[in-house]
Write a protein that binds this DNA or RNA. Structure first.
Lengths: 121, 121
DNA sequence: TGAACATATGATTATCTGTTCATATATTAT
DNA sequence: ATAATATATGAACAGATAATCATATGTTCA
């Protein structure tokens, strides 16, 4: 991830030098880490979390989501776009109505792990 | 989560009314969802993701983290505070040096699930 | 005690984000 | 074709956020 040589910044460095090189070796490429942060950023908004939670139970149309979440249709639409770009939700059109649903099970698992964490604290 | 009665916003609502009430029933309280978003917000920054990833392998002192991540000591310190507040990392002091490590296994699992998601796309 | 080192904190600033408002697109029914 | 409905999009603004700089705290050693 970082190519520059390591400086002996604090007296403990030499004790951990092998560990440091292991870290450097196993660190995913910067781009991957950036993408990962981008993904979690999507989960980092309560409106989007509510949308995802609502979709846990059922496929829902935009106006239903808006009501459940208690936010304007416009705001929901913007947020659904974010979720769509992150491939967290998919959609199908039926006449005038568009139905959204969870894209896959990662959403459930990620939110589940997060929930576990905050409930232990 | 939302107490107001549901409006018949689109023609599909009645088809899903039971699903909607199931959603409303199983939705965690607003405060929980807010906390959940706050947690994921912490994962939603590449500097913090890098810090957490570095701590996957080993307990590290601040200056080592700064070098590995390639960011100033000050910036790392600010971010470590965020991670600490979210109970994602813990620390111990040894003389002048402070060593940080992962607080528990949720960090690994959450990042692992995220990684799976981005690598499938 | 004072100098050197490791880390933390506060203020500032530039950038990013989410909502709102106005409007556009798409579909259906009359 | 026109109106009505469901959703999407663009611009703009307010609030949040992360890095930087200056400085403070805490620890060790001479």
């Amino acid at each position: 991830m970082k190519k520059e040589p390591l400086v002996d910044c604090c007296s403990f460095l030499h004790l951990h030098e092998d560990a440091l090189h292991k870290v450097l070796g196993e660190m995913p490429p910067d781009e991957t880490l950036y993408d990962l942060a981008e993904l979690f950023k999507v989960f980092g908004d309560s409106t989007r979390i509510k949308i995802l939670y609502a979709l846990f139970e059922a496929e829902l149309c935009v106006c239903d989501i808006a009501q459940l979440v208690g936010v304007s249709q416009t705001a929901i639409s913007h947020q659904l776009r974010v979720l769509k770009n992150a491939k967290l939700v998919k959609f199908r059109r039926d006449g005038k109505t568009v139905f959204y649903s969870l894209a896959d099970d990662h959403v459930r698992r990620i939110i589940g792990q997060g929930m576990e964490h905050i409930q232990e604290s």
